[in-house]
Amino acid sequence: MNENRNNLKLGIFITLGTICFVAALYLLGAKQNLFGGTFEIKAIFNNVNGLQKGNNVRYSGINVGTVKEIVILNDTAIEVNMMVQIDVHEFIKVDAIASLGNDGLMGNKLVNISPGGSRSRTIEVGETLLSINELDADEMLRRLEETNKNISLITSSLVGIVDKIDKGEGPIGTLLNDNNMALDLAKTMTNIRELSFQTASLSQNLSKSFNNFQSSENTIGMLMNDTVLAAEIRTVVDELKNFGTNSEKISSDLNTIVSGIKKGEGTVGTLLSDSIANDDIIKSIDNLQKGSEAFNENMQALKQNFLFRRYFKKLEKKK
């Protein structure tokens, strides 16, 4: 009886211990997706920064799988094979991006998968994700080291510059150390201040003038505010436009006429271009001049003729 009781207690002890062990194994296995459906996808990186088998894979921050294998393809490409839960397969699109990250500031490395476009197709099993190679801490430190060196150089240069300025060398040094220049500068500042006052008053005056333009009935104000006048001006402008159009026509007509004249077409053209006609006209004018001179002589003779003398004297008296 006592032996049976002991055996029962031992049985309970062993069973409970085994259950605890199996539960622990199950929970650890579930974390590594040993008991659920999974599928494999890949990503290629230049540098995996210490990523190891078994590290987590996250999709939008949720643990969805683990790193199954890391294979060196060549000197610049390292392939990371990941086992991801089958439940999230439909959400991982072909343009989803894999990147390496840290679990917290000092935590383990992990692979982050950022979602792709919603219209893109779902990734196939074994297909390779797009990947981003991020700067690792060493690279950042190297760059920081370079920056520090540059800052050191800049600082030493600045020390030299400040030293020169302090000694009064160069334009800035002279400016800071020369009393006369300081006085000149003070004067210049005074002038600038006065100028600024004047500018301020000028701007005030301008502002007032502008207000006057807006409110008063002077020409500019009317131009700016009177809508009737504006309509009239618009009409005038339209008429001017018409005038311009007409002038254009006239000028084109004149152009045609002038070109015709130049070509010797028409009477004027003939007059201008025909040299014989020209000579004839000159002769005619000459004849006319001679004729008028002869006529004048005749008239003088006629005035002195006793038959007409009396008539001319009457005309002079009337004047």
């Binding site: 032996e3 002991n6 055996n7 207690k9 031992l10 002890f13 062993i14 211990g17």
Partner: peptide, 16 residues
């Protein structure tokens, strides 16, 4: 077997 079980009880259960 009996002694093994008895000792298991002594070592395991009684030390729990």
């Amino acid at each position: 077997w009996k002694e093994i079980l008895k000792q298991c009880g002594e070592v395991g259960y009684r030390s729990l």
